[in-house]
């Protein structure tokens, strides 16, 4: 797994950036979601993968010994997933409203606020 995960993360990053650069709203949303996933997997992989060794202290031991899975990145990922979920949910509603108001799903048409003499 240690060898595969970096490639998975890289491909996910590349795919999400590719999707975010598309003009379609739906692809933008999928790109945002995949960007969140790739960052979470990246955080997961920095702690080195340890299989079948949870960070549990035995009944009478004082502290952990030997090899154990680092629990901190897992806690970070849980937090990041929740935050990312909130932002993605908001983004979907915002983009839906935008589609209703602007009547288009083409990002290239969303340039009125960039124009110097905007209406």
């Amino acid at each position: 797994m240690d060898e595969i995960l970096p490639f998975v993360v890289g491909i996910l990053y590349a795919a999400s950036l590719y999707l975010m650069l598309q003009r379609n709203f739906v692809k933008l949303i999928i790109g945002l979601i995949m960007m969140g996933h790739s960052t979470n997997l990246f955080l997961f992989s920095v702690s080195r993968l340890t299989r079948g060794a949870p960070a549990l202290v035995d009944g009478d031991a004082e502290k952990l010994t030997g090899i154990f899975a680092d629990p901190v990145p897992q806690a970070l990922i849980l937090t990041a997933i929740v935050i990312g979920f909130g932002i993605q949910a908001f983004a979907i509603v915002l983009i839906k409203r935008n589609y209703d108001v602007a009547g288009t799903d083409d990002m290239d048409k969303l340039n009125t606020t960039d124009k110097i003499n905007a209406a």
Partner: peptide
């Protein structure tokens, strides 16, 4: 105009937060 500005603001800031989070991962 607000919705249009918000979409740009949200997407680019989400991207920035992801980069920031990746940086936290490297530091950790």
């Amino acid at each position: 105009n607000q919705l249009e500005g918000s979409v740009k603001y949200l997407v680019i800031n989400f991207l920035a937060s992801s980069i920031f989070l990746a940086g936290i991962g490297v530091i950790y």
